[in-house]
Structure formats: structure tokens, C-alpha cells
């Protein structure tokens, strides 16, 4: 249902557009003036006309602004209303939440914008705490999962696994908050202002959360990608397939081992290196 002001607004737009200056108003040519024998009076009349136009223009502009302000406040109110009435859906339905977040992005609203910096984002205030809180609470749980599994996976964990762990935790306490991978991505994003060292990195086909402030170099990423595909790697696999020399292979493996990113299995024909981060999926 369009707001009654909208019609008013459209009607105003249909009127010829006034202009405060008279540059576009057809001014009678001096020759014509001479013929008609109109004198100084015409000049005054001209000025008067343009003044009238100008003041009318100002009036219109003002009403324009009033319109917009009203429309904006109506919009704000309905958006706030929307997020209030749908707070439950936003929290419980991942598809709805993703749509809502996408809508917010489309109209330039960041539901996660911090209200403390840069004078505060009124969007965040307007949207109330439901959206904000959801992602911040989720972020806390993501941090927990990352921290708890860090010893095992060296601080590199697949988003899918984080989600699985959070869901499993929910089930065990009887809750059933559906969380999507998109939510987890947003939650990690929400941590950025804290410069917490949490980052999402792409490794091969998968998105991983890296919770230790450490950059993987290209060799390490390559090896991890290979493990992701093959399950494990060995010295000779890397030497043959990547054409690396023994020292290079050894360095990469030693680095990954010392960061707990891979574990050694010495019970095969050749030493195998497995990554717990990629293990769960194959299992």
C-alpha cells in the first residue's frame, strides 16, 4: 500500500520543473520589445516573474525535502518493524536470514555495522538487536569451536565442520537453531573489527577459517590442497607430481608438522602426512 504522500510526490513531479534562476525562462527579445513599445516596465515585470519562480522553486524544494524525510522515516519505521516482527524468523530460519542480509546489503544497510565508531550507524540501531546479536553470538561460538579444535588441526578448520560442530552442540542441549555456512561467514566477518586474527581463506575447493594469525605460503597451501584431494601426501608424491626437490618438500612438511596442521603416519610403506582439518569429510 503506497503511502499517501507518494501520490503527492508524483503529482508534484508532473508539474513543469521550476528553476530558481531565470536562465531557461524565455526572455522576449529586445527587438520584439522595441516593436511593442514596451519600456522599462517589462524589465521589472521580468524580474518579478523570475523572483516568483524562484520563491516557488524554493517552496517546492522544501516540500521535496519534507517528502523525502517523511518517506525515509516511514521506511525506517517499517524496516525496524519488519526486523522486530520477524526477529524470530531471522534467528531461526537460515534461508530467511540470508535473504534479509542480502536485502540489507542491496539497500546499503550493514546489519553488523558497529554503532560505536564513526558516530554510530543508525541502521544498526534501527534494526534492533536481533540481527546483530544473532551474528555476534554465533561469532562467539565460532571462536569457541576454533579454539577447542586448535590443538588438533593447528588452527585451520573447514567452515562446514564448524557448522556441523555448532549444530551438534545445539542438538545436545535440545536447541534447534539452524545455522548456515553463510551465517558463519558473516559471523567471522563480524569479528574483523576486533582484529582477532580470524580469517576465511580459500583452500582448493573449500573455505576454511584460519584462527591463528599465520600466513600459509604458497607451498604450504599447495600441499594442503593436495591433501584435501588425496587424503594424505608423501614425500615422493610431492616430488613426482610437483617436481619439487627433496629439500623443498622436507621444508614444507616440517613447517606443516610443527604448526600441527598435519600429522605423521609412519605405519605405511612410506611416511604419510594427514591433515585432521580435511579428515572429517572423508570419514
Amino acid at each position: 500500500m503506497p503511502h499517501p504522500y507518494c501520490f503527492h510526490f508524483i503529482a508534484l513531479q508532473l508539474l513543469p520543473k521550476p528553476h530558481p534562476t531565470n536562465s531557461h525562462i524565455p526572455v522576449p527579445s529586445p527587438v520584439l520589445n522595441m516593436r511593442k513599445g514596451v519600456g522599462l516596465g517589462a524589465l521589472t515585470r521580468n524580474t518579478q516573474t523570475s523572483q516568483q519562480y524562484a520563491s516557488h522553486g524554493q517552496l517546492l524544494q522544501k516540500s521535496h525535502i519534507d517528502e523525502l524525510t517523511t518517506q525515509l522515516s516511514v521506511f525506517q519505521a517499517s524496516l525496524a518493524q519488519f526486523s522486530r516482527t520477524h526477529a524470530k524468523d531471522i534467528r531461526s530460519n537460515p534461508a530467511f536470514r540470508a535473504e534479509f542480509a542480502r536485502m540489507c546489503t542491496a539497500i546499503g544497510v550493514d546489519p553488523l555495522a558497529s554503532s560505536s565508531n564513526r558516530g554510530g550507524s543508525f541502521w544498526a540501531e534501527m534494526l534492533g538487536t536481533s540481527v546483530n546479536d544473532f551474528y555476534f553470538e554465533l561469532a562467539v561460538r565460532v571462536v569457541e569451536v576454533c579454539r577447542r579444535t586448535r590443538q588438533e588441526n593447528g588452527g585451520l578448520i573447514a567452515i562446514a565442520e564448524v557448522r556441523e560442530r555448532i549444530m551438534r552442540q545445539d542438538e545436545s542441549i535440545g536447541g534447534s537453531n539452524d545455522v548456515s555456512e553463510d551465517d558463519i561467514l558473516r559471523a567471522v566477518d563480524a569479528l574483523r573489527p576486533l582484529s582477532s586474527g580470524f580469517a576465511v581463506i580459500d583452500l582448493g575447493r573449500r573455505q576454511m577459517i584460519r584462527s591463528v594469525p599465520k600466513e600459509l605460503n604458497t607451498d604450504q597451501s599447495t600441499v594442503l590442497e593436495a591433501i584435501q584431494v588425496l587424503g594424505f601426501i608423501t614425500h615422493s608424491m610431492l616430488r613426482v607430481n610437483l617436481g619439487w626437490d627433496g629439500a623443498r618438500v622436507q621444508t614444507v612438511i616440517d613447517d606443516l608438522l610443527s604448526d600441527s596442521l598435519v600429522w605423521l603416519d609412519d605405519q605405511a610403506d612410506e611416511k604419510e602426512y594427514w591433515a585432521p582439518s580435511f579428515f572429517k569429510k572423508s570419514g
Binding site: F232, D254, L264, D265, D266, Q267, K271, E272, W274, F279
Partner: peptide, 19 residues
């Protein structure tokens, strides 16, 4: 997880005493 069953490597080289 196969590597779960490995404590460390018996090689004498020190950087191989992993995990």
C-alpha cells in the same frame, strides 16, 4: 585417522620426531 596411531618417527634425525 591413520596418523592417530603414530606417536613419533623412529628416525634419528631430530626434525623427524614428530608430531
Amino acid at each position: 585417522f591413520p596418523a592417530f596411531f603414530t606417536r613419533y618417527h623412529s628416525s634419528s634425525s631430530p626434525q623427524n620426531t614428530q608430531p
